[in-house]
Design a protein around this nucleic acid. Structure first.
Lengths: 214, 214
DNA sequence: CTCATGAGAGAGCACTGCTCACAAAGGAGA
DNA sequence: TCTCCTTTGTGAGCAGTGCTCTCTCATGAG
């Protein structure tokens, strides 16, 4: 796997370059990314790009996976504390709004790349789950029915030993976090709340209290 | 304004017909709505549609406003109770997923029609705000700083006499609601939670408790 | 040192949004 | 009633898109 990978090496570099240009286009033109424009910027024929990505959707999927990774990095780099991680996530979203829209906005073609994205997406959630699992939170009133089993399964996978209702509350906090960021990014708070950071912190403090942290 | 409106009348009918076909296309093809395809379905030249909508974006804006109206209707038709309204909103979203994506997903071209949509968007929120305003909720610990003033301004506009921190919590509940529905619709809960309705109810019960209802 | 494989070019298809000059067709004013 | 003139619809056309195909050619593998 040394000299044999020379060709694979330049291929990987080219792939990265395409993704970089595509990411730049994404941040200026929005979600309607043009493969031809990317090729034009790279000084190559549009058909050549298809040697690297079978379709525009495949390029987008690659960008989505990378975005999950980047967001995961940001979340893991923050201090292991609820508010810190939340703010790290929000700041990443503010810095990469179109990539946030790509992963948490409406699915672009009405279809979501199925399995490839799941592990990448899990990292951010895990960063929050770790905090909840590490803390001692009150269990509160239990959930019942099939939902309890499902939440128990999630708990077994993500944070063993956590009560299902705590998992449910943690997921709620995560939804609250996503909702707040998306609302801010997508213009839902326009002309209503300008103290965005304070508002977000207020929301996430509430979410933490609901989960049972502190 | 009687006979003079004959022309305006057929124009309005034509406009509605275009929007209806566009809505149908939206529900099958997703967000990448094709004006030409709509025209084709109507048996008219694509250029004729431009007599009614100056651009594809303008058509989409019209659909967005209509969607807000439809959602507002659904929310107002529900019993004036927290959980009932939340479930009505969710059920509307499940019935009109692409329209939900249109209004609460990522902005399609990176741009949001500015003022036209605001009053339409307010109705759903008002349906929830009424419930909070009508209930007697504990004020809890107060907010301070500029955020408090902004929340107070929102309170004065939406539900006079409500404490700013209650408004903040209510907005949080709304964000939680939006986040939960979007997550369900956009596939975030895939392979994790199947008891969707129970999960949503669990979330919104928690949101209500956080606001201070019941 | 050959030679197959991978990378790139370019034409082409069907589609898109949008503009333009043109042709009916109907209501408004004389 | 007759004449305009605004409104509505047409079809061609431009620039752009995703994607496929065939072709060429340099280069790394054997």
């Amino acid at each position: 796997m040394k000299a044999a990978s020379l060709r694979a090496r330049v291929r990987a570099e080219m792939t990265d370059e395409i993704k970089a240009v595509a990411r730049r286009h994404l941040s200026t033109d929005g979600a309607n990314l043009s493969l031809r424009a990317v090729a034009r910027d790279l000084g190559m024929a549009s058909s050549a790009v298809y040697r690297y990505f079978a379709s525009r959707d495949e390029l987008l999927t690659a960008l989505i996976i990378d975005a999950y990774g980047s967001l995961g990095d940001a979340a893991e780099a923050a201090p292991r504390e609820w508010l810190a991680v939340c703010h790290a996530i929000r700041e990443w979203a503010l810095a990469h709004p179109h990539e946030w829209a790509l992963i948490y906005g409406s699915p672009v073609p009405g279809y979501r790349a199925p399995r490839d994205t799941v592990p990448a997406a899990a990292r951010v959630i895990l960063a929050l789950a770790r905090i909840v699992a590490a803390a001692e939170v009150a269990e509160g009133e239990p959930v019942t029915g099939p939902l309890a089993d499902e939440l128990q399964a999630v708990a077994d996978g993500f944070a063993p030993g956590t009560a299902p209702q705590v998992v449910g509350r943690a997921m709620g906090a995560w939804l609250h976090c996503c909702g707040a960021i998306s609302a801010e990014l997508f213009g839902q708070l326009q002309d209503t709340v300008e103290a965005r950071r304070d508002f977000f912190e207020f929301q996430m403090r509430g979410a933490a209290r609901w989960v049972g942290l502190t």
